[in-house]
Amino acid sequence: MSILTIKNLSAGYSETYIVSNIDMVVHENEIVTIAGTNGAGKSTVLKAVMGLLPRVEGSAVFLGTELLRQPTEDRIRSGITYVPQVANVFGSMTVYENLQLTGEICGRPQGVREMFELFPVLAERRGTYAESLSGGERQQLAFARALLPRPKLILLDEPSAALSPALTGQVFEEVKRLKTMGVAVLMVEQRARQALAFSDRGYILDAGKIVLSGTGADLLGNEEMAELYLGRHPQPQTADA
C-alpha cells in the first residue's frame, strides 16, 4: 500500500524550477533511495514535500492528506518527519532538550525515555550540547528526533553527509533498523551504490527529472546507467595498490 504519492511535482526557489514533473511513490515499510548527480534536485524533492521551498506545484498525498496545502509545521502531525542534511539538530540545546522539545510538540513526553533505550549513547550524552556531539552521535540524535513522534515515513537528506566511511556504515545500519521498526524511509543519498544495495526501490534524477526507476538491485544491475549516474564501481583494493 502506498503511503506517499507524489504527482507532477515541480519545485524551486525562483521562477525557474529545479525539479519538474516528478512522479514518485513510497509504499508502507520500504526504503526508497533518490540518487543522481550533483545538482540534480534530489534534496529539492524532500524540501518541497516538507514545505521549505517558496515555489511548489503538483501534488504530494500522504495517507490521504494533501501535504502541499498544509503549513510546514503541521506536516509532522500527519505522521511524516524530516532529517535535513547537516543542520539536523538544535546545536545550542542539549541532547535531552532536543528530545524533550520533540516530545512536547508531538504530545509524547514519554518518548524521550524510549529514545534513550533505543540509542543508549544518547542517554550517556544527555547533558551535552548537540553542537559538541561527534558526527555519528549527531546523526543518532537526528534519527531519535525523527523517530520520537512515531512517524509512518521519515525523509532523510543525505544521512552520510560529512561522515567517515566507517561512520557511514553505522548510519546505514541505523537506516535499515528504521525499516524493522515499521517505518518507511525516503532517502536522498550521494553514496548511491551503497544506499541502493539495501533499498527496496530507487529513483535516479538528472537535471531535475527522473531518468530511471526500479528496484535497488535492478538499478545497480544496469551497469551502463549505473556508471553514468551513480559513478564508477569502487575498485577492490589490492595488496600492491
Binding site: M50, G51, E73, D74, I76, R77, T81, P84, A87
Partner: peptide
Amino acid sequence: DNGDLAATSGIR
C-alpha cells in the same frame, strides 16, 4: 537556533 528545522519539527 534554526528556523527551518523548527518549522519541520512542528513548532508554530
